[in-house]
Amino acid sequence: MTEGLVSIIMPSYNASQFVTESINSVLLQTYLNWELLVVDDCSKDDSVRIVQKFVDIDQRVRLFPLEKNVGAAAARNVAIGQAKGQYIAFLDSDDVWNEDKLEKQLAFMKQNSYAFVFSDYYVMEEDGRKTGNIVRVPISLTYHQYLRNTIIGCLTVMIDRKQTGDFRMPLIKSSHDMALWLLIMKRGFKAYGLKEVLAGYRLVSTSNTSKKWKAAKDVWKVYRKIERLSVLYAMYCFCGYVLHAVLKRI
């Protein structure tokens, strides 16, 4: 594990339309000590060729093309397994970061000795136009608070592995990030929110989270199958999840 290095985890699948913008937002970071690990999940478009161009011009960008499609969780785990950094950050191949994202989050973490941080982010349309919706995060979340308010945006998360220990994402369809945050919180770590907009989330019509009913079913699966909550407590948490999901979109 390399002290101070940020390993950026990027799964990619048929992302040729957006991946250039996503990688450029990493290249523009004011904090320079990073590596970008792109795992291409057997794309059928030009994604690999596009990413390879970045690999050729910047040795901090590393590409791992998979021979079969394994899904976002397993693809992220391939990258995490290859990561050399003390810090792990996540960026999907259709989202973007503000250029000072890493610098500000690292300062926030180091100043407070935090192991797990996230931030506000804005929402944009598929074509990149900002919707005007900004997701505002709380100051902190505990395990039980997060069960009822799954507001942590994966694209804003940074984790200090030196404090939390190593980890992998649970292999479920679309709520594997939620399951990972809960796993880390169960190790005794709060998640701390930096109340500043540092990233942009793209609404893509083919994404899992765009299918709201399916996403809700996956959240329920996390409650019952992974966290093994009682039916009553799971229903209580699910009501909170629905309420906060609605508020997030207002």
Rank of each mutant, 00 (worst) to 15 (best):
M1Y: 06
T2A: 11
G4E: 10
V6L: 03
P11R: 03
S12H: 03
S12D: 00
Y13W: 10
V19F: 01
V19S: 05
S22F: 03
S22I: 04
I23W: 03
I23K: 05
I23T: 03
N24K: 14
L27Y: 09
Q29H: 08
T30G: 08
L32G: 12
L32A: 11
E35S: 06
L36P: 00
V39A: 02
D41G: 01
D41W: 02
D45C: 07
S47C: 08
V48E: 13
V51K: 02
Q52Y: 13
F54V: 00
F54P: 00
D56K: 10
D58A: 11
L63V: 05
F64H: 09
L66C: 00
K68N: 13
A73E: 07
N77A: 06
I80V: 14
Q82R: 15
Q82F: 12
A83E: 01
K84N: 14
G85V: 11
Q86E: 12
A89E: 00
F90P: 04
D92H: 05
D92T: 07
S93W: 06
V96M: 14
W97K: 02
D100H: 11
D100W: 04
K101M: 12
L102W: 09
E103Q: 14
E103M: 10
E103G: 09
E103K: 11
F108L: 08
M109R: 01
Q111N: 10
Q111F: 05
S113N: 13
Y121F: 13
V123P: 07
G128T: 13
R129Y: 14
K130M: 13
T131P: 08
T131D: 09
I134V: 15
P138H: 11
I139H: 14
Y143K: 07
H144D: 13
Q145K: 04
L147Y: 04
R148I: 01
N149S: 15
L155Q: 10
L155T: 09
V157G: 00
V157D: 02
I159M: 12
D160A: 13
D160I: 05
Q163C: 10
D166V: 02
F167Y: 09
P170L: 04
A179R: 01
A179K: 00
A179Q: 01
L183G: 11
M185G: 03
R187C: 02
K190P: 11
Y192N: 12
G193H: 05
L194V: 10
K195A: 10
K195G: 04
E196D: 10
V197E: 12
Y201S: 11
Y201G: 04
L203Q: 15
V204W: 11
S205C: 06
S210N: 11
W213C: 08
K214D: 15
A216Y: 12
K217V: 10
K217W: 08
V219E: 04
E227W: 06
E227R: 06
Y236V: 12
C237I: 03
F238T: 08
Y241V: 02
K248S: 14
